[in-house]
Amino acid sequence: MVVLRRIDKKRFKELTYPHLEFLFNVALKYSGAKYDAEDLVQETMYSAYTKFTQLRDENSCRAWLFTILRNHFLKEKKQLLRRPYLDDGTSYLDYMKDEQSSGFVDRLIEKDANKKLHRVLASLPEKFQSPLILYYMEEMTYQEISEYIDVPIGTVMSRLARGKRYLKKGLLQKSAGRKIKGNIIQILGLKI
């Protein structure tokens, strides 16, 4: 009887603990704050332990844990006010045009880059966040991302493309906004 199957704590630890660092870093990208990330990992591990008997394939433990963490994150996110992502339709490439080539990112984004990244990432819908995290942080292929988040590979590709655009634009916009205060013409890279 399934309900009576004893949870093997030792086995659970053997399988899941090697992925704690991965979970923490995904949680950190989702939440943007260390303590929130730790809470998310705790909740994930608690759920994983109670559902351990549902893990069919031990080789897919990492993906299984990711799914649990993602679900927890989505559940928490739903409790917050839903704000639609607003895009002004401009291209992020516009922000690059007037910059000198070498070392432009360092000059433009400079310090607090992580904070900027978190702010921009947090402003995106989760459907863009997860592929971006798996792509950049885990260097996963489209196929691997598709399996992790359980969406078709074509959807992964288009979400990544859009996600990257939003992310790059957001980063450049924030940096330009700080550097060139309030001048929308300059921010857009247009010459008058």
Partner: peptide, 10 residues
Amino acid sequence: ELDLFIAKMF
């Protein structure tokens, strides 16, 4: 360059 920078932050 931007792509590499983002990957570094991730």
